[in-house]
Write a protein that binds this DNA or RNA. Structure first.
Ligand SMILES: [Zn+2]
Ligand SMILES: [Zn+2]
Ligand SMILES: [Zn+2]
Ligand SMILES: [Zn+2]
Lengths: 146, 146
DNA sequence: TTTAATGTCTCTAGCTACTGTAGCTTCAAG
DNA sequence: CTTGAAGCTACAGTAGCTAGAGACATTAAA
C-alpha cells in the first residue's frame, strides 16, 4: 500500500490533485490507515496513471470518467470508448485549425511592424481593425482551446 | 451615446461581458444617465472593439490591459507592444506543437482500434500505457492551451 | 526517548474569462 | 398609462486545479 505522496510520485500527479479527483468522484474514496491517512493499492495506481495519461492527451475529466467506467466492463463493445476518442480528436483538430489561423495573423502583425512609435505600430493598428487581417479567424469556433 | 446593449451589438460583445470588463478595470467606468444606466461614446466603442479583436487573437486580458495603455501613448516607442505580440505568437506556437502531437496520438489510437470488446480496445490500451505512444507528448509544455 | 523534520489531514479561497440567475428599476412604444 | 424590453446590482457557477492555514501523524536523527 502507498501513501498519497508515494502514489503521486509514482503516477506523476500532485497530491492535492489526487485529493481533488477523489472529491469530485473521479477516483473512489481511498482506504484509511489507523491515523486517518489515505492508503492506495497498485490498482489505484493504475487507475490514476490512466487518468493522468488521458489528461495529457487533453481529455476532459468528464470524458475520463466515462472512459474509466467503460474500462471497468471489459466484455462490453468498445464503440463508446472509440466515440469518445474520436470526439476528442475532432476537438483537437478544431483547435489546431484555429491556432494555425491565429499564428498567421500574429506573425503578419509582428513581421509588418517597422518598429517606430506606437502611433505607427502595426500591432496596435491590426488589433484596432480586423479588416487588416488576412484570415477569418473570428469564425473559427472560439474557446475551450485550453 | 450608446446604451450598453447597443454597444454590445456594435462591438460583438455580450452585455454581461462589458460589465465584467468594467468591473475588473479593463474598461473605464461608464458615464451614467439620469436613470443610472451606462452610456458609451464612440471612443468607448473603439476601445471595446480593440479588446474584442485582441481576445479573438488569444491575448489574455492582462496583455490587453497593457496593450490598451500602450495605445494611449502614441508617442512612445512600440517595442513593448511588439514584445507582447511576439510573446503571444510564441505561446500559440507552443500550443500548436502540443496539439499537433496530441493529434498524432489520438489518430493512432482511433485508427488502430479494430472495434471489438473493451478488453481489446486500442483506445483503452493506449490510455493505460504511455509507452504505446509514438511521441513525447508529455514533455511538450502543458496547459494554458485553453 | 525526545525532538525535529517531513508528510498528511480538512477546509477555504483563488485562478481565467466569462455566463447565468434573481429580483429589482428604467425606458420606449403604443 | 400600460406593457414589455432592456438595464441595474449582486451573487453563484463553470474547468481543473493550486495554494494557504492550522492541526495531527509518521519517520529519523540525536
Ligand atoms: Zn510595433
Ligand atoms: Zn482579425
Ligand atoms: Zn476500441
Ligand atoms: Zn502517451
Amino acid at each position: 500500500m502507498l501513501t498519497i505522496g508515494k502514489l503521486g510520485q509514482a503516477a506523476g500527479v500532485k497530491v492535492p490533485t489526487i485529493r481533488y479527483y477523489e472529491q469530485i468522484g473521479l477516483l473512489p474514496e481511498a482506504e484509511r490507515s489507523a491515523g486517518n491517512q489515505r492508503l492506495y493499492s497498485r490498482k489505484a495506481l493504475d487507475r490514476l496513471t490512466f487518468v493522468r495519461h488521458a489528461r495529457e492527451l487533453g481529455f476532459t475529466l468528464d470524458a475520463i470518467r466515462d472512459l474509466l467506467s467503460l474500462s471497468d466492463h471489459p466484455d462490453q463493445p468498445c464503440a463508446a470508448a472509440d466515440a469518445i476518442a474520436k470526439a476528442q480528436l475532432a476537438e483537437i483538430e478544431k483547435r489546431l485549425a484555429r491556432l494555425a489561423s491565429l499564428k498567421v495573423e500574429l506573425n503578419r502583425m509582428v513581421v509588418q511592424c517597422a518598429g517606430g512609435k506606437i502611433a505607427d505600430c502595426r500591432v496596435i493598428e491590426v488589433l484596432s481593425d480586423h479588416s487588416l487581417c488576412a484570415t477569418d479567424h473570428r469564425h473559427l469556433q472560439d474557446e475551450k482551446d485550453h
